[in-house]
Deep mutational scan, measured.
Amino acid sequence: MQRVNMIMAESPGLITICLLGYLLSAECTVFLDHENANKILNRPKRYNSGKLEEFVQGNLERECMEEKCSFEEAREVFENTERTTEFWKQYVDGDQCESNPCLNGGSCKDDINSYECWCPFGFEGKNCELDVTCNIKNGRCEQFCKNSADNKVVCSCTEGYRLAENQKSCEPAVPFPCGRVSVSQTSKLTRAETVFPDVDYVNSTEAETILDNITQSTQSFNDFTRVVGGEDAKPGQFPWQVVLNGKVDAFCGGSIVNEKWIVTAAHCVETGVKITVVAGEHNIEETEHTEQKRNVIRIIPHHNYNAAINKYNHDIALLELDEPLVLNSYVTPICIADKEYTNIFLKFGSGYVSGWGRVFHKGRSALVLQYLRVPLVDRATCLRSTKFTIYNNMFCAGFHEGGRDSCQGDSGGPHVTEVEGTSFLTGIISWGEECAMKGKYGIYTKVSRYVNWIKEKTKLT
């Protein structure tokens, strides 16, 4: 034993070699072989497995989906700052455009905790909710729209109204504003409101030439003092309507412009014939205590009207009353817009006519005020429907199939267009061939041609 100890002390290297040989010859039971080890760690190889990531292109799944990435790591994937920024906006807080917040056709661009709407022409605001041009839906104005110097929408209202708090709607500024039905039992019968379409306001006024200088022999019209197929109006439903009495009662109609003036057809009036105007009328054979009678003290036909040349060209006249009318729910003026808007309103496509005229061709006159909704007829169809001249200051309205029309005794009465609950004068009943005849239409004086003249002559002093 002493000898062994001496050998170990003198030859430590020998001992180490012996131990190493023993270990190498022993069977290893701690580690699995290569094949079995792979069965336990069965993990798919990654895209760049075996390579240094710093030297390969980034992978979106590896960089940002398996674990949260930084902007720089995302930049490695896209290799483009702009594309990385677009991805980053949604990656950080989701897609803010998912709810489609942009209105009126706006395009949404996502941002971090926010979004941006790219608005089409005519709109602005956070969600493109603000109209900035009158060309689109009248700028959301209830009545009139004008573009300011910086191309912003400025709404306005006709006389007797003021802008509401929203700067879009119009509200009454006087007790009985024009064009409004205020009798409670008839307010439910107000005709369907007309909503502004998209309009090209630059070209809204037709490029028409008034044929002022045409000389033409007097034409022989049949029954051209021209509501057939209409309905009984309720008291106060058309408070701007008046009836004219002269040699015979209810020979023509008219509309209240203001307390002192009536507008009617020029062919209705004769110099030297006494005319009485009755406002607030409903049943011409009954006294309903809503009527107001006034005498006409002055007749002003349009300066281009000449019955000797043509009885229905420039067929418009103004009547001055001896005493002002007292405005109330049964006696209310009709609204008159400017030339541009009167023309736009007419193009809405349908209007209402009213009167006490004959209820059928050569038949009896109506006792109760009649009204009828009539569609506008395109000019080409209008011209083809008659052998008589249709001037540019006239328009056609009615039904091709016949059966409904204005008729004798309705002449001078109103053709009105309702705009968001307020009625505007767009025409004056003038003439036609018979009444409600198939293929024939009622012919009306186009008020847009005469609004400046009306307003100039009827100013209240």
Rank of each mutant, 00 (worst) to 15 (best):
Q2C: 15
K455A: 07
A317P: 01
R384G: 14
S406G: 15
H415M: 04
D95A: 15
K274A: 05
E82V: 09
I210R: 08
P375K: 14
Q241L: 12
I210L: 13
K260F: 07
T218V: 09
R43P: 13
R384M: 12
A366Q: 14
E420H: 06
G349Y: 12
D338P: 12
N5T: 13
E142I: 04
N452Q: 11
K45M: 07
S350G: 10
V416E: 02
L52T: 15
G421C: 02
K152G: 08
F395V: 02
K274V: 04
Y161A: 01
S385N: 14
E159H: 06
L19N: 02
N313D: 08
D131S: 12
A173T: 13
G357H: 09
S182M: 11
C252Y: 01
D322S: 04
L20M: 09
M394W: 07
V227D: 13
E129T: 03
S49Y: 10
D150I: 10
V227S: 11
K293F: 14
E72Y: 07
E98W: 08
I284V: 10
V368Q: 11
G280N: 02
A279H: 00
D33F: 04
E286F: 09
Q237H: 08
E116W: 12
T85M: 08
Q185C: 06
S430R: 03
N151F: 07
V202E: 13
R298L: 02
T422M: 04
N5W: 10
F31K: 10
S329G: 14
I429C: 06
V419E: 02
V416K: 00
V228N: 05
Y441P: 12
S11C: 12
G432D: 10
T287K: 06
A149L: 09
T194H: 11
I7Y: 09
D378I: 03
D150A: 10
I429K: 14
V277Q: 00
G122M: 05
Q237W: 09
N113F: 04
G236Q: 04
S448V: 03
N313M: 10
I284Y: 08
T264H: 01
S385E: 10
R298G: 05
E288L: 05
C102N: 00
I429F: 12
E418G: 05
E340L: 11
K387G: 08
S107W: 05
D410W: 13
Q237P: 06
E129K: 04
E35G: 15
S11Y: 07
C128I: 02
A266P: 01
Y330D: 04
N38S: 15
V269P: 02
H361P: 15
V195P: 11
V419A: 05
F121C: 04
G409Q: 13
N138C: 02
N151M: 09
E53A: 09
K89L: 06
L14Y: 05
E285M: 11
T332M: 07
W356G: 03
N138R: 13
E171G: 05
V353A: 08
D338S: 10
K440H: 12
K274F: 03
E27G: 10
T389F: 15
T16I: 07
E124C: 04
D33T: 09
K152N: 14
G421N: 14
T194L: 07
R46E: 14
N38R: 12
G236N: 05
I334K: 00
D378A: 07
E323L: 09
T29Y: 13
P235R: 09
Y444M: 05
D315R: 01
S182L: 05
G351C: 03
K362R: 13
P301H: 08
F395Y: 03
S350E: 15
D95S: 15
P172I: 05
D315N: 09
K39F: 07
Q143P: 00
